[in-house]
Design a binder for these strands. Sequence first.
DNA 1: CTGAAAGCGCTTACAG
DNA 2: CTGAAAGCGCTTACAG
Lengths: 341, 341
Amino acid sequence: MSKKKRVTLRDVARQAGVSPTAVSFAYNAPHQLSQITRERILETADALGYQPHPVARTLATGRTNTIGLVMPTGLDWILHDPLFSLILGEIGSVCDEEKMRILIVPAAGDISPGMLATIAADGFVLFSIHRDHPLGRVVERTNRPLVMINGDENLAAPMFNVDDVKGAYIACQHLLEKGHRRIAVGTIGPREDGVVIPVYERRMQGYQAAVRDAGLPPSTLRPVFIRGLMSMGTESFEKIWSLNPRPTAALCVSDVRALAVLNGARKAGVSVPNDLAVVGFDNLPESAVSTPPLTTLSQDLPGRVRLALSTLFALINDENADDSPPPPHINPLELLVREST
Amino acid sequence: MSKKKRVTLRDVARQAGVSPTAVSFAYNAPHQLSQITRERILETADALGYQPHPVARTLATGRTNTIGLVMPTGLDWILHDPLFSLILGEIGSVCDEEKMRILIVPAAGDISPGMLATIAADGFVLFSIHRDHPLGRVVERTNRPLVMINGDENLAAPMFNVDDVKGAYIACQHLLEKGHRRIAVGTIGPREDGVVIPVYERRMQGYQAAVRDAGLPPSTLRPVFIRGLMSMGTESFEKIWSLNPRPTAALCVSDVRALAVLNGARKAGVSVPNDLAVVGFDNLPESAVSTPPLTTLSQDLPGRVRLALSTLFALINDENADDSPPPPHINPLELLVREST
DNA sequence: CTGAAAGCGCTTACAG
DNA sequence: CTGAAAGCGCTTACAG
């Protein structure tokens, strides 16, 4: 094959003996053409192996039929956060239905104020952007359609979150009511790249508020930095278990962390919930079948993702949309008490 | 803000008092411009908030700086296959380094012969394409740069696989040597969408060959269809355990399946490896820390992915590349004997 | 129902 | 070092 010249609309027009306009109409405005002309054009196109050039089409119409998924880190995130996989899967279903494509945009490193402008997408979904992240500034001054998921509520953008603070509050309250007074908090440590994840920040606040409202000292809670990886179970558990004084319960900011701790505890021969109660966050499918099944906070992820995307699509289609972002959409969380507490 | 007119290169040129060419050069051929002109242009651009239009640039240069990741199913795959997440992560690192973007292309449903042509990408990575899948035809007649990972070796395309047949062979042999004569094979069932996954097909062949070469009857192997989901552990284990006669070992075509079975066995109080030996495939990070750690086949995934991508990038850059696809690249697999056998 | 023309916003020989 | 011009391959008023 090698450098075959691309067949263009012009070639088809010439071959079929019609104008370029007619060929374009055959694809984009069939009713503007007589049945017979249209068929001849389509047959010629087929015979020549013509395919409309997607980029040229985009330049002319202004539509890419692509949405950009922007995250504040490298792609390692996708890799290791099962919740993100769930979100991605849901976005995938919606995009299948809407015939939109998905462009992955990791925003590690160099973030210029105009970075979104350099990306060929009709709109963006931004994940976990913190107000102090360079993307926070970008978001506030861009005029391109975007929505945020799990973002910082201080940013002025359409926001689709869960009620992290309240969820964390009731999770912590649950443990306090069971009499726990020494609680490890399994949370994320400072990231090398300095990125702060808003949901974890809010969850910490929720835990702390519950302790405060119960009239207990802040030292009731002991933060422990653990990684969100199943393979780090032993290390994570050890970090918690070696606290002095030894905690009787662990609140984890994510289910992966909680599941890893469960795994580590089992290997160490420590009984959950008898020796250590464990609570997660987000209710992954795995959390229902772990040993023991995990107490956690459940949310309507599909509903939230769909709402975010339909908002985004509306923004894309109404150029002259209202300027002020709507109030944040905050899904409730429900405490699912299972056997780990 | 609303419908702000886009600032174009032309606007910058006018404002800076230079030609459009000069503005373009300021970005793409700095050395062609005097230091002073260049700075003036860049300042003007900045002041006007100019951003080069990525689509226009693509149309003129023919480069999108994007690679398409094509899979034969919907996005549900990404969702549930942890191995795919690993691959994606690795692709992500390489693309970060190369300043390439990633477009996700699920190819469920309507696949026209020209489908790749409708996608704005410089090249493609195709996953798990079977010769009978509609994409198989597409692949063979397209002249766009592409490579395949875990694909069907009967397809004429640059291929980057592992030695599934041999790996499966030695895994099965391992069990036979331990004296197992009733072996369940935990494999994928027919998918609703009819998609066949080449690696699983090959792995089945490898298991069967080992049994044959050992002079044992084919009935030594009993296929059981199980899902690749951690949350299906109990169901998967039950299916295996209820075979009659009851198997003493299970070969699983993927680690997720093996881990799920491990989980199900534990809940049922069945001891691994004493009552049931279990072998996985692919060596996920989790497999090293499961209870018990999983015997499985390990591969050099990062190396393979990087090789596939560098081949793709070479193809993208050399239009007049050699026509005949290179022989398939087949990475060796190593049996990692851990405590589940 | 059909066509000539302008336009989408860049890049890049080519000529000076 | 700098600019006028053609071209990338479509779409879409507009006029007939």
